[in-house]
């Protein structure tokens, strides 16, 4: 049997999805800043200054998309978007794969980072975690 490449790289990974609703519709720049702050909390949630790997996210909504990437602490979080108007809600998916972590540690980092973000932005953002089964159903239904 082939050796597992993830084990070979000594990496852990996890991913999560949330339905997101904003108290007031956000323009593109505000949405970018809000999601960047969220990802920043995820990075901090990993609890290590030196991170080798990738944390990425995509936010999709009827108005378009926002993409976020963190690859190195020396670089800012990269954010790109294409939106046709103010955004009131959408779905955020985030995934991290990091060298030197176990899967459960990556999961905990995503969860703790999200909890920290939610606490700071409680007046503006409401999140509900999407279970895997719901995500599959929404994909099959053409989301």
């Amino acid at each position: 049997m082939m050796e597992d490449s993830k084990r070979l790289a000594e990496a852990g990974s996890s991913g999560m999805a949330w339905d997101v609703r904003f108290a007031a519709a956000m323009e593109e720049k505000e949405l970018q800043d809000t999601l960047t702050a969220w990802m920043g909390e995820m990075v901090r949630g990993m609890g290590k200054e030196h991170i080798l790997g990738h944390i990425k996210a995509v936010f999709r909504c009827p108005q378009g998309w926002v993409r976020l990437n963190f690859v190195d602490p020396r670089l800012p979080i990269d954010v790109q978007s294409a939106l046709s108007g103010p955004v009131a809600s959408g779905r955020m998916k985030a995934m991290a794969a990091l060298v030197g972590f176990e899967d459960h540690e990556v999961r905990r980092g995503l969860e703790e980072g999200t909890a920290a973000f939610q606490s700071k932005a409680a007046d503006r953002v409401r999140l509900s975690s999407v279970r895997r089964a719901e995500e599959i159903l929404s994909l099959e239904g053409g989301e």
């Binding site: 996890s14 991913g15 999709r60």
Partner: peptide
């Protein structure tokens, strides 16, 4: 590698 696909959406 994870259970949530991000790139397919993108």
């Amino acid at each position: 590698v994870g259970e949530v696909g991000v790139d397919g959406d993108l």
